[in-house]
Every structure is written in C-alpha cells, then in structure tokens.
Simulated assay, not measured.
Amino acid sequence: MPAPVRIALVGNSFAAKVQLPALRWAGGNEVVGIAGTNAPRAEATAADWNIPVATTDWRELLALAPDLAIITTPVDLHAPMVRAFLAETGAAILCEKPFTLNATEAADLAREGAGRLCLLDHQLRWSPWRRRLRALVQDGFLGTPWSGRIQMHFGGPARLNHAFGWWYDAERGGGILGAIASHLVDSLQFDMGAVLAVRARLATYRKTRPDAEGIEREVTADEHATLWLRMANGAEVSVDTNIMAPNSTGSLVEYVGSEGTLRLEEEDRLLGAKHDAKIAPIELDASVPTHTELGMPDQGIFARILPLYLKDVISAVGEGSATLADAATFTDGIATMRVLDAARRSATEGTWVPCQP
C-alpha cells in the first residue's frame, strides 16, 4: 500500500465541517498539521481529528514537509502562503477561490508554480451533472451557442444579520463576486470558452455591520453581483448571484443555441431538448455521497462534490503528477480573475470592459 499523502491544512474556518470529513471520505491521506487564527479552536480541531500539529502560525507547517498544502484562508493571504509553500517545500498546492486579489497577482503565482501541481478549489468541475452538461455542449448539442443565463442565490436570516468579518472587506478579497461568481465564471469558461468583455453591476445592501465587539463597520464588499458576458464563441451570457435574497435561493444554468437548449436546475436536475421537442430530463449516473455518508452537516452541493475532487487530487499527488485532467489550474485562475477585474471596473465606470490581455 502506498504511503498516505501528507497534507498541511492552512485555515480552520470550515475544516471540521467540510474539509476534514471530505478528506476522510477521499482516503489515502494524512493531515499532519492545521493552522488557524484561533488557538483553542485549532487545538480542538486537531484533537478531534488526530492531527499532530495545531498552530496559529501557518509558517510552522512549512517545516512539516507536506506533499500537499490546502489553503483555505482569506483571499489577501493566498499569495504569500502559496509563495512560501512553493519556495520552501515540494508540496503540490490546492488553493481556495477566488484565487487572488487580481489577475496580475494570479499571473505571478502561475509563473512561480510552473511545472508543479498547482490547482484551485473549483470543485463544481467534478459535479456529474455539470460534467454531462459540458460534454453535451462540447459535442455540439446546442448547435451555434446563442445565449445563456446562470444564477446562484444564497439567502436566509442568518446571512442578513451576519457579523462583520473579512468577507465584507473588499481590500481583503471579500464579496460575492469572488466567493460565488468566480465558481460560475470558471464553469462557464470551462463549458463555453473565453469571455471577451463584461458589463457588471455590483451592489451592497447593508452598508454597515457590527463586528465581534459590536462596533459598526463599513461594508465595502459586494453582496449582489450581476454580470453580462460576451463570449468568444458569439454567445451572450448573464450571471447573477446574491446572498441577500432569503426567499430567492436557487441555482440555474441554461444554455440556448441554434439547435437545442440545455438546463441544469438546482445543481442536480439536468434537462435538454432539440428545438423540435419538449424539454425533458437527461438521465445520467450521478453517484455523489450524501452528507450523512460524509459525516458532515448539510453544507450544500459544494461540500458534497468536494470529496470527489479531493480523491483525484490526492491520487495525482501520490503519483507525483504535475497535472490533473479537468482540474482548474493557476492558469485557469488568471482567466477567471481577468473577468472579475473587468467586472469591478465595469461596475465603477458603467460600461463594457474587455477582459482579455
């Protein structure tokens, strides 16, 4: 039996709820250290999951010589952490999205990680429903692509009243454009090719939120993002994602072309039809573990897909591979960040902005 892949887990916000149950399901790995900003919480996670090292100084994990570093921290910390693990260890990298604060930073990291297994946590690429959708698009089911609409809303009273944290601070990379639209843009470009230009509207509805001490802090990050995208293949696609609409939750991907329509509803119901037929479900083998099987609370489709992705990442690391087919790479991250940069500029200037170099 091959030795388990040694993992350094940088970030503890969702480790016990999501990453560690997913890693347990994936198998073939050993978490050798975890870093978090709260010492008692990091120590508790380590004790519960038999992790030998818990620290508030992520640099201590460099000395553990991990095979894989999983970085799940605020966005402004991604670049220095990735750079350190690339420079001081031989570890492969799996970095949370959004990749960086901007495309320039993403391009720098991609150059520094060239020749290494450097991936982003766009796990929706491992969704069996999205994979079937992409295969149909690539096989020409749509004919000439005409249009698309993509929606992903997260709402609820808890989010409306959530306390201030880095997620609401634009300078730290907070906001729904990075958190969710990055996933949607990555999936769109994976399905349909490059985005050429963007028109965007970004909105912040709660202008202040109380921090942990009850002090009102200004919210500078976006809570609602709407993007209109011109694709290199000629299609125009709208993307809408919102965390401030409690009764408007839901997920939709719909592509329309000269010959057919494809629609993915709520991430687990794929439908399609040629234009001379009524749209109907498309059957596929979609074996995805349940939250019960994973031993985690219900964290939505992202959490259920993650272990499928991690299983293949761990396999690639164990084999010493510098690539993993279909996974989002740092180079893919540059393309996504160019779209997000253009969206921010468009929202400020009120015009279409090109997003290709």
Rank of each mutant, 00 (worst) to 15 (best):
Q123P: 06
V137N: 02
R125D: 01
Q123I: 05
L142Q: 05
L133I: 08
P145M: 10
R131V: 10
G148F: 00
L119N: 14
W146F: 10
G140K: 11
G140W: 13
D139R: 05
L142K: 04
G143D: 05
L133H: 09
L120V: 12
L124D: 07
R125W: 03
G143V: 13
L119F: 15
L119I: 15
L133Q: 02
S127E: 06
S147H: 01
P145A: 09
S127R: 10
W126D: 09
R125V: 06
C118K: 15
S147P: 01
L142N: 04
L133P: 03
P128N: 10
A135S: 11
G148C: 01
V137K: 00
I150H: 06
F141P: 06
R132T: 14
L120I: 13
R134W: 04
G148A: 07
L133E: 04
A135Q: 12
R134P: 00
W129Q: 03
F141W: 13
Q123E: 13
D139M: 06
L133M: 14
R132L: 05
D121L: 09
L133V: 09
Q123L: 11
C118Q: 15
G143T: 14
H122G: 01
I150A: 01
T144N: 10
C118R: 15
R125E: 00
P145L: 03
W146L: 12
L136D: 12
R130A: 08
L119A: 09
S127H: 07
A135E: 14
D139A: 12
H122S: 14
L120C: 11
G143P: 10
D139I: 02
R125G: 01
L120W: 14
T144G: 06
S127M: 04
F141L: 02
W129N: 02
G148L: 00
V137R: 01
S147N: 03
R125F: 10
V137Y: 02
C118A: 15
P128T: 09
R132M: 15
C118L: 15
S147F: 01
S127K: 03
S147V: 00
C118S: 15
R130H: 12
F141M: 07
P145E: 04
S147E: 03
Q138H: 06
L142R: 01
Q123T: 08
Q123W: 10
L133R: 12
R149Q: 11
L133T: 08
V137L: 08
I150P: 01
C118N: 15
L136K: 09
W129R: 01
L136I: 05
L119P: 07
R131C: 06
I150G: 07
D121M: 13
W146M: 09
R134Q: 11
L120D: 07
R131W: 09
G148Q: 00
L124R: 12
W129S: 02
L142P: 03
I150W: 04
L133C: 07
L133F: 14
L124Q: 11
R130C: 04
R132V: 02
Q138D: 13
C118W: 14
R149E: 12
Q138K: 06
T144A: 07
P145V: 03
G143H: 08
R131K: 14
P145W: 03
R132A: 14
L119G: 13
R132Y: 08
L124E: 12
L136F: 08
C118V: 15
L133S: 04
G148S: 03
P145H: 04
P145Q: 07
L120Y: 14
I150C: 01
I150T: 02
P145S: 03
